[in-house]
Design a protein around this nucleic acid. Structure first.
Lengths: 140, 140
DNA sequence: TATTGTTATACTCTATAACTATA
DNA sequence: TATAGTTATAGAGTATAACAATA
C-alpha cells in the first residue's frame, strides 16, 4: 500500500504540476466529471472541504482554462451552475490514466504466480455490490 | 485502491492538521525516523523534492517543536546534522497508526472468506525480499 | 571559486470578513 | 432578514535570488 501510494503519487503530482492546476481544482474536476448536472459553488465547496471563496477561485481558474462553464441558475439567480466541459473531461481522464499507469507497472512487475494469486484474492472484493463504499457492509 | 486512498487519507490529514505541521514536515519526520544518523539539510531537500530554503524552514519548525535537533557537523562546519528526537519518533508512530487504522477497518469490514482470499493473494508479494521497491524485480 | 545553509522577496492557495445581488 | 457568490485582506508554504560562512 505504502509503495503504491508513493509510486503512483509521484507521476500523478508531476502531471498535476504540468497542468498548472491546483489540487483543489483537480478534485473539483473529478467531482464535476462524476456529476450529471451542473453544481452550485456552495455545494462544491462543501464536498471538497473548501471555503466558498476558495471554491469560487478554483472555479475561476477552470473556467478560464476552458475546463468548466459557470452559468446563472434561471430558477434562483443567486446561484451559479458549474459544469465540466468536454475538454475538462478529457483532462481528467488523462490524469486518471496516469494514476492507473503506476499500478499497472506494479502489477506488471510481479511474477505471474504472484499476479494470479493477487487477482484471485481481490476478485471477491471487486465483485461486491458496494465496491465504492466497502465499509458499508452487508449482514454477516 | 481508490477507496483506501481517500478513506485512510481523511483521518490522516485530520491528524496532520491537529498537529499544526505541514505535509513537508511530516514527510521530513518520516525520513528522519527511517535514517539512523543525522541528515544534512541539502539531502533532506533533495529527497523531499523541496528547495533548500523550504527544507530549512521545515526543519526550523520541527526543531522549535522539539521533534528534531539541528547541530553543526564538526567535520564540515558548513553542514548541519538534523536528527529526530524521541518525541519526534513518537509523533511519527502515532501518525502511522492513524493510517493503518483506516486499512484495518477496511479489512475488518470484509467477509471472512474475502479476507482470507486477500491475505492469500498478498502473501507471496509481502514475502518478497524487495517489498520496499517491488518494481526492482528479479530475473524472470 | 564552489558549496551549505539562511534570509529577502514574490507568488500561490487558503480562510475570515466585508460586500453585492437576489430571495 | 437570510443566502449565494465575489472581492478584500491576511497567513501559510513554496521557489528563486541574494547573502554569509566554510571548504
Amino acid at each position: 500500500m505504502r509503495f503504491l501510494m508513493t509510486a503512483t503519487g509521484r507521476e500523478f503530482f508531476q502531471a498535476v504540476d504540468d497542468l498548472r492546476l491546483s489540487l483543489s481544482q483537480i478534485k473539483m474536476l473529478t467531482l464535476l466529471g462524476e456529476a450529471d448536472e451542473g453544481a452550485a459553488v456552495k455545494r462544491l465547496a462543501e464536498q471538497l472541504g473548501l471555503s466558498m471563496p476558495a471554491a469560487s477561485r478554483a472555479v475561476d481558474g477552470l473556467v478560464k482554462r476552458g475546463l468548466a462553464t459557470r452559468i446563472e441558475d434561471p430558477d434562483d439567480r443567486r446561484c451559479k451552475q458549474v459544469s465540466v466541459t468536454a475538454a475538462g473531461r478529457r483532462t481528467w481522464a488523462d490524469l486518471i490514466a496516469k494514476r492507473l499507469a503506476g499500478i499497472e507497472r506494479f502489477v506488471d512487475a510481479l511474477e505471474p504466480a504472484e499476479r494470479d494469486a493477487l487477482a484471485a484474492g481481490l476478485a471477491p472484493i471487486v465483485a461486491r455490490d458496494d465496491v465504492s463504499h466497502p465499509t458499508r457492509k452487508r449482514a454477516r
